[in-house]
Amino acid sequence: MSALLTLSGVHTHIGRYHILQGVDFTVPQAQTTMLLGRNGAGKTTTLRTIMGLWRASAGTIRFAERAIEKDATPDISRAGLAYVPETMAVFSDLTVRENLMLAARDAALDDTRLDWIFRFFPALKRFWLSRAGTLSGGQKQMLSIARAIVEPRRLLLIDEPTKGLAPAIVGALVECLMEIKRGGTTVLLVEQNFRVAQAVGDHVCVMDNGRIVHAGGMAEFAADESLQQKLLGLSLDTHQ
């Protein structure tokens, strides 16, 4: 299975803090890779470094065989990466429609793809012309994810999409992520909810102190409680 994204010895400094201390992992094509770890392990910094929002101070990041660690963020985005930050990052003064149009960049919105998105997130159709700032937290998260998938992308970087969401919305989100996966899109997903991680993940990378401390299959990891306990300080059973 070929790797779509490869990080080799990536270091990132934010001010005087050395956050990523040699991150190595690969994201296989058309699979969902989970990036797990305790708070402050460096997961969000990893995603932001891949997107060029933080500059890697050392190491290489290869996307589709091309080094992107020195590219500007807009170039990385236009190469086919989409990033969904954890902060329900919508443009609150713009309508739902305008938020999606921004993500489509120069292209017109594809009605078939919109219908596909509305199947998972019907609220977005209902509030099509409402300002994004007036949506609830869950609806904002839906819009944030819809913005990343409104156009086909080669790799989705999604940061804790279920954080603070009601269980019903989490269900819709998982269904959407599964559908994205079935469509052949590669996903790198940071997630704290173990159930979600187990449901959608094919592979898992665990981070600690700015390094990858474990990489392997999700099924094996989910089955190994002692490994979970050792790496994350928790077990799947206690988080169900």
Binding site: L53, T73, P74, S77, L94, E98, L102, A103, R105, R147
Partner: peptide
């Protein structure tokens, strides 16, 4: 226009606008 929408997006969050591919 679409250009105006991008300007509003940049005003709200330059990082997010960049992550969507806008310079």
């Amino acid at each position: 226009s679409p250009f105006g929408r991008v300007l509003q997006a940049i005003r709200e969050s330059p990082f997010r606008a960049e992550a969507l591919g806008y310079r």
